[in-house]
Design a binder for these strands. Sequence first.
DNA 1: AACAATCATCGCATATTTACGATATACGAT
DNA 2: ATCGTATATCGTAAATATGCGATGATTGTT
Lengths: 105, 105
Amino acid sequence: MRTMKPQVAEKEMDRLADLAKALSHPARVKILDILNRRNACICNELVDEFPLAQSTVSQHLKELKRAGLIMGEIDGPRTCYCLNPDGIAEMKKIFHDFTQTFKGK
Amino acid sequence: MRTMKPQVAEKEMDRLADLAKALSHPARVKILDILNRRNACICNELVDEFPLAQSTVSQHLKELKRAGLIMGEIDGPRTCYCLNPDGIAEMKKIFHDFTQTFKGK
DNA sequence: AACAATCATCGCATATTTACGATATACGAT
DNA sequence: ATCGTATATCGTAAATATGCGATGATTGTT
């Protein structure tokens, strides 16, 4: 044991950067917030919340899916999006662990 | 009072996205970690920690400064970087508030 | 079968990011 | 004054991100 300091491992920092990238656009943060407050959401409804084209929203959804934060379930001609509990839990843990390493309130 | 749900305001979500952008590169996450574990750090020492050119590290430092997470104090021919306590505190609060809005562990 | 609706993907344009080497600036030492 | 060290900034190239409209694929409806 070389140090006692609460450390965040290299891999966790890489994953943190990856999650942060997924959150690095306001539209994506807001999508997560919407999916959280409603329990799930048809893609269409999401599009209505933004001044963005449908294809653009779809791309943002893809990035959130890539990061493991949401899931999309095909339901007839629609796609129903919801949070991915595992990804959200991981995000909570990693952000918590990281921010906790900093002293102060 | 229109809703009781714990909400993260639009502005906070925008700031979250901005902070996330600053954390969206592994090198920048690691710089914060280094500055946290040592109390402060000469730019030069930082450069040695990465397989990156000095100018590249300097750019990453600039982005972290832009986001308000670090400060650079000129000290003779060197620049001594350290965490910006206010920015770090804000980051902790905003990430905490946001992640807390999600149910589950 | 034809049509409308929903959504992902493609192609493209533009903007931003990332990285580097070269240069400029500032300072300390000789 | 010259030189070396440390660092920021500039110019540039390549990669990635962002946004849009058009197109495709799928499904439900008529």
